[in-house]
Nucleic acid binder design. Sequence first.
DNA 1: TTGTTATTGATAATATTTTTCAATAAGCCA
DNA 2: TGGCTTATTGAAAAATATTATCAATAACAA
Lengths: 145, 145
Amino acid sequence: MDWQTFLSKAGYRLSEPRKRIMKLMEMADKPLNPLAIHRLLREQGVHLGLVSVYRTLELFFSLGLISQVFQPDGLVGYLPVSFGHHHFIVCQNCHKAVEFLGSEDMQELIQRIHSETHYQVRDHLLQFYGLCPECQALLENGDIN
Amino acid sequence: MDWQTFLSKAGYRLSEPRKRIMKLMEMADKPLNPLAIHRLLREQGVHLGLVSVYRTLELFFSLGLISQVFQPDGLVGYLPVSFGHHHFIVCQNCHKAVEFLGSEDMQELIQRIHSETHYQVRDHLLQFYGLCPECQALLENGDIN
DNA sequence: TTGTTATTGATAATATTTTTCAATAAGCCA
DNA sequence: TGGCTTATTGAAAAATATTATCAATAACAA
């Protein structure tokens, strides 16, 4: 089920702003925050209220259509979620992000955490940082770092 | 080497505000953000400028003395780091957090990410959410959720 | 098409973070 | 110990980010 169907079934309307915002996030392969989305849309001539961007992201997030991605510097961005997977690796240079298939062999670690801390484990956040293929090439050429 | 020695050796002064802030974070067993730190110190009669809190956290973070902890709702808090470990589990009810020993058996997953995405993996963020022992008891008594 | 109502956008209010700069105090050295 | 140098602080202001309000608009069901 695509996000548009999902949104409708959940009782929400498929408005133009919502379509624009999701489309932008799908095109951008890096996490975007509300201000960035507003600025980018404006640059391509789409004039949305910033408030709508906030509201839309909040809605999408609460429905699980997008994920929060935490940058190493503490900034938070959003990325559309291919259903079921919620793990990303983010390029430290160009910030391009891709999802990878969540490992389900986390059980052993969860066991260990439980015996170490006595916490009941219910959820987790796992993200990786590194260099995408393009930026690896740049690094080898001495163009970065 | 304790953080005070570390700070000195790095060429920074061991000021009263810095001591207060670190001590507070060490006492609190949950992630604190700048505003919370400012408010808590003020409540216990310590009158610090909010600006100093921001500056101190930035410094501590850049030196690796504290870690950022991401709450499921997107808020960021800070926790002192026991050297070498940077993985936390946060209680979803009372927000109390404890560190657990970082698993070094991440290698296999890193391998898989590399072959799936062709990203060079350099760092990662791994956090768990759950219920601490106290809140598990509350849950069983029907006092929460 | 038309009517109902969720959704938007504009404006204002609030909250958070950063900048600036004079006053203060940490730590070195005599 | 006491003075000197300079990193650090605090206050105020500026900049930035987020949330609230409400009339105007547009999505969608009938």
